[in-house]
Design a protein around this nucleic acid. Structure first.
Length: 276
DNA sequence: AGCATTTGACCCTT
DNA sequence: AAGGGTCAAATGCT
């Protein structure tokens, strides 16, 4: 039996996206009647990342479109709290390279007003696919408890993450942020596995913590340092989000007698590692 | 059954 | 007119 035709409700002329905006929401600005300037008026910022679906916010996909001269489709997301909390934050994700892992350009529009998580800092990025200089360290922000998807996807992501770190010419320091006290979840396109997740808190996502228990980090792979952090203790996500890869150089962190460590990330950010 | 995602149509901007 | 952004019914998943 043939599929019934898709009948789309026509919108009223002179009322773009319905009266009062999408889903009856008013735009954040006083809605000037010169609607032709609407798109330009949007507050947007661009970020390059290797993990575009994993920034500490809960997104809902609402569209996908093939863009002319772009090798990959563009994915459209908006905040899942759009209706509940009148949050107009949205983002579009465009894969830029076919590298492994690929680099994505994420364009954010409007900051989150849902109070679910801070907005990303555009100055902390993946560095446009530039690998850190030799001798530098990379902080890779992953989540240990953000999702609720299938185990097989977790496994796939695990492999993806491993690949990512193995390909780096310089050491990685992986910070596993503990989001167990948050209600955040993350949206992923079906074709892209989500980052390693667990319903239980504080599981490392890259390398197992099978090494000595005397230190909070493991070094069971020559170039990888894995280290769990308790995000709830810091306002770290004011500056860095899940999936961000922030580079900092030099020996700017030190151990403390109690097993914790202090890391100066620059940019005025100082974080203290905790044992687990 | 409820919710999220998919996908073609519609509409706006350039 | 072309390209891009969003809508919303259909579909899929849990």
């Amino acid at each position: 039996m043939a599929s019934p035709p898709l009948l789309k409700r026509k919108q009223q002329p002179n009322q773009p996206y319905g009266q009062g905006g999408i889903f009856g929401l008013s735009p954040p600005e006083p809605a000037p009647r010169d609607s032709r300037k609407r798109r330009k008026d949007k507050h947007t910022w661009i970020k390059h990342t290797l993990t575009p679906y994993f920034d500490g916010h809960l997104w809902r996909k609402y569209g996908q479109k093939v863009i002319k001269d772009a090798p990959y489709p563009r994915l459209y997301f908006r905040c899942s709290y759009r209706e509940d909390r009148r949050c107009l934050a949205s983002k579009l994700v465009q894969q830029m390279t076919h590298d492994d892992p690929p680099l994505y350009e994420v364009t954010y529009t409007y900051e989150h007003t849902c109070n679910a998580a801070p907005v990303p800092a555009p100055d902390v990025e993946a560095g446009d696919d530039e690998r850190p200089a030799s001798g530098g360290l990379v902080l890779s922000f992953g989540s240990s408890s953000a999702g609720h998807r299938r185990d097989e996807r977790r496994t796939m992501q695990m492999q993806e993450e491993r690949q990512q770190y193995h390909q780096s010419p310089s050491p990685f320091l992986t910070m596993n942020l503990d989001y167990s006290n948050r209600s955040q979840q993350h949206a992923f396109p079906s074709s892209v596995p989500p980052p390693a997740t667990s319903c239980s808190p504080s599981f490392p996502i890259v390398e197992s913590s099978s090494a000595s228990s005397s230190t909070p980090w493991t070094d069971d792979d020559d170039d990888i340092l894995t280290w769990d952090w308790d995000l709830s203790a810091y306002d770290l996500d004011e500056h860095l989000q899940l999936g961000d890869h922030a580079q900092f150089s030099g020996s700017s962190f030190s151990w403390k007698p109690d097993g914790s460590a202090l890391a100066n990330l620059g940019m005025g950010i100082e974080v203290k590692g905790v044992t687990f």
